[in-house]
Nucleic acid binder design. Structure first.
Lengths: 351, 351
DNA sequence: CCAAGGAATGTTAACGGTACCACGACGACC
DNA sequence: GGTCGTCGTGGTACCGTTAACATTCCTTGG
């Protein structure tokens, strides 16, 4: 019937919007890209037409015309599966909403020596990079990428560094709040399992713990602080050490959920009930937190949302090439203390 | 210097390949799409040019011209995080290699009544769908999608169904092999924790277990078979029941790794050493298998590779519209029995 | 009141492919 | 032997968007 030449059918094009608004396609394009030099009145007319027709730019045409691939790389090493899957879900959601192409790569077995080369190679094939820890801590990688002129976002890094955009939570304050929660419940001997030393977030979390104790006027007992590496295994060992003491802690604050899960496992093996005999808290609110029993009190870090934000940040940075103004942002998102079943008041006997 | 009008620079185009090969771009296009009617000699000339120039079709241009979006949906409900992350990694790898656009959606809270509608809506917005369990078991969803004419691949389903392409392992045989392994080690009282009843793979795994026992001339004790639901929690309960018996099993075969992890946890809580007092095996080889201690003996199911295969399968099906020959394939990939530290000979005393 | 210049908008020509049709060559069939 | 398909290939026009340039409009200062 129709002159259905090649079009599939439904999609609204920029021409239809332009016609509807009584302007040229070019103007619509400018409005859509928030570019420049469009009179406010015109912009509004166009926006209304866009809304009425429910127009979405065709990503294929856009990237073809702009000759500006929107490939965004997400590089990971070997985070816990739970962490990775949330990261991926978020990134993928963001990518499909913004019509960016997400490419994945693992640098699990890239030696530090090879990092610069890998980064250079990466820079030539993508338009932006998302770096979760611990990669975002590597000066070699980030400086190489930035030198190549492609935007980089560090997601869930512990601190903000100049030149490097960053989407993260306030690890320090989160940790402080968690510690305060344990103190409120009556705990005074709190064991702490640190995170991997090569990640800035680890230090922040420890500092928050320290600060909260100090605020409560409690001296930090160095023997109650154990080094961990964010792995289940390291949590096992750290907990063993903590619980082998003459006066073991009544609560354990692990720097992530995996290590907290390990702490619970060790407690059980020793015949301790959680939370009656020992309270345990974690950090991140990964799926493990609700998989195990009892469910973990932990800090919710909205990884998926953070990954999505990162994509948006990158795209904005990639698409804006007019102003040439490199904007480096430090986007701190809200965390949340989630109380579940792994915390109780300390046992009377140990008071 | 050059007439660098708009091109970014590096990318090899179809025209360059055509020129190099001495044919028209159209012919190159036909070769690239394996379409039809190209003489063998010509095809080879083109392929050589492609290889020499290291040509990769520009996905944007392709999908723009073809007006054939290659959006592929991956729908999931609430699998374990480990499972999901592997699935995503594989799918994303496949998608970026083939320049398909992957979109993600969760139907965790879609009621069975709403499934048909959701499927219909989905069908109108994507060109292909990957369904992991348990969604691929739903007749309502699959039939609706197939009726809409879009290709569907069930990944990791337990059995092959007509009309529905499928990438999976042989659950029956894998389970049989695992059981045989336990028997070889000397176990005769083996507890089995079944998977979720709404997934065909669960039944297959149970049947394999059953068959192996039968082959060894051992009667199946129904009391040693507990229902589970693939969750950690259900594993906890099932194991409690198994270990509370007067003559508890000397080995437990859980239908997935999460439940096996739960089994180990219960064993530890009861003061049992794994594997000295109790052997435990799982299924899937998700990251949990190597996270916990002791590391699990399990069946490796190459989820990532399977997801990647699924994408390729879908794309081939989408891009081939000439022959109109719907091909439904049942792609069975190899599994692998991975022996780690959670299995030993049964304790002497229980012989 | 007019020239100059920037701001707002329109026009043209790609971006890299593929759908569609045309066309020559070749074999088959009546 | 001529007509008619079929096969293999080339030519052309577009897919929907944006870069680059052209044009119009308005402002502003002398």
């Amino acid at each position: 019937m129709e002159k259905t030449l090649r079009r599939k059918g439904d999609a609204v094009t920029i021409h239809q919007v332009a016609h509807h608004a009584g302007v040229s396609p070019m103007t619509v394009s400018r409005v859509m890209n928030g570019n420049s030099n469009v009179r406010e009145a015109t912009r509004e007319i166009v926006m209304r037409a866009v809304r009425e027709l429910n127009y979405t730019p065709n990503p294929a045409a856009r990237s073809l015309a702009a000759a500006q691939g929107t490939r965004i790389a997400l590089i990971y090493t070997n985070p816990s599966a739970a962490y990775l899957s949330e990261l991926l879900v978020g990134a993928l959601d963001g990518a499909s909403r913004t019509a960016a192409q997400l490419v994945l790569d693992t640098w699990a077995n890239v030696t530090p020596a090879a990092e610069r080369t890998a980064a250079r190679k990466l820079a030539s094939s993508v338009a932006g990079v998302i770096l979760p820890p611990p990669l975002c801590e590597s000066k070699a990688i980030t400086s190489e990428l930035i030198a190549a002129g492609i935007p980089v976002v560090a997601v869930a890094s512990g601190r903000f560094r100049a030149n490097l955009s960053c989407v993260r939570i306030d690890d320090f304050r989160a940790s402080q709040e968690m510690t305060a929660h344990l103190l409120e419940m009556g705990h005074t001997r709190i064991g702490f399992i640190k995170g991997h030393p090569n990640q800035t977030a680890s230090a922040r979390r420890y500092e928050g713990f320290h600060a909260a104790l100090q605020e409560a006027g409690i001296a930090l007992d160095p023997a109650l602080v154990q080094q961990g590496y964010f792995t289940y295994r390291s949590g096992l060992e750290a907990t063993e050490k903590l619980l082998s003491r003459k006066r073991p802690p009544t609560a354990i604050f692990a720097s992530n959920d995996d290590m907290a899960a390990a702490a619970i496992s060790v407690a059980h093996r020793r015949g301790l009930d959680v939370p009656r005999d020992l309270s345990v808290v974690g950090f991140d609110d990964t799926p493990t937190a609700t998989t195990i029993w009892p469910e973990l009190t932990t800090i919710r870090q909205p990884i998926a949302a953070m990954a999505e934000s990162s994509i948006e940040l990158l795209l904005r940075s990639i698409r804006r090439k007019d102003g040439e103004t490199k904007v480096v942002v430090d986007h701190v998102v809200a965390h949340q203390l989630i109380k579940r079943d792994s915390v109780a008041e300390p046992p009377k006997s140990s008071a």
